[in-house]
């Protein structure tokens, strides 16, 4: 099974140009989508869609890159650093409190902070991949996953708030 990078015909690196990736996806769809080409198979279209989805997203792109480089993930990525876990737990607690208090201002402040952490980890991840430091890359992928979940929860709270 070719890697998502191979399917889309792009270099296997973390800091892909996402706009160019999207354009490439559209071009390839002209060949792979059964509506565009009678000879195209449903399977080719499904594989292209899956590859595009994998590369579009930071987390799944990171996983795909590790796999393409032959590094075993060993299940879901986890960050076990006690200091980090403590920090995340405190952040989530604060978010829960703000949610209960319906303090949207506080929620947004927390979200901005976590977005900052996310960007910092993503930068570190990019550097780790560039220097093929895969142990560090795994750590940061784990962090991204925690931050992502936190921000997803912020979205839910925001939507609740809008409709209330």
């Amino acid at each position: 099974m070719p890697s998502p990078f191979e399917i889309l015909g792009v270099e296997a690196r973390f800091d892909l140009d996402l706009a160019a990736l999207e354009k490439r996806y559209r071009e390839l769809s002209r060949e792979a989508h059964p509506d565009a080409k009678r000879s195209a198979t449903l399977g080719a279209s499904i594989d292209l869609n899956a590859a595009y989805r994998a590369l579009k997203d930071d987390l799944s792109r990171g996983r795909a890159l590790l796999e393409a480089r032959g590094v075993a993930m060993g299940g879901e990525e986890r960050e076990n650093d006690p200091g980090f876990l403590m920090e995340v737990m405190e952040l989530r607690e604060a978010l829960g409190d703000a949610r209960d208090a319906k303090d949207l201002g506080k929620v947004l402040v927390l979200a901005t902070r976590v977005r900052g952490f996310y960007d910092a980890s993503k930068k570190a991840l990019t550097a780790a991949f560039a220097s093929s430091d895969h142990a560090i890359a795994k750590h940061h992928l784990g962090r991204l996953r925690y931050y992502r979940r936190f921000l997803d929860e912020v979205d839910v709270i925001q939507e609740e708030n809008e409709l209330a």
Partner: peptide
């Protein structure tokens, strides 16, 4: 949601 179709 928002996965491109067809998908599997």
């Amino acid at each position: 949601r928002n996965t491109p179709i067809p998908c599997e």
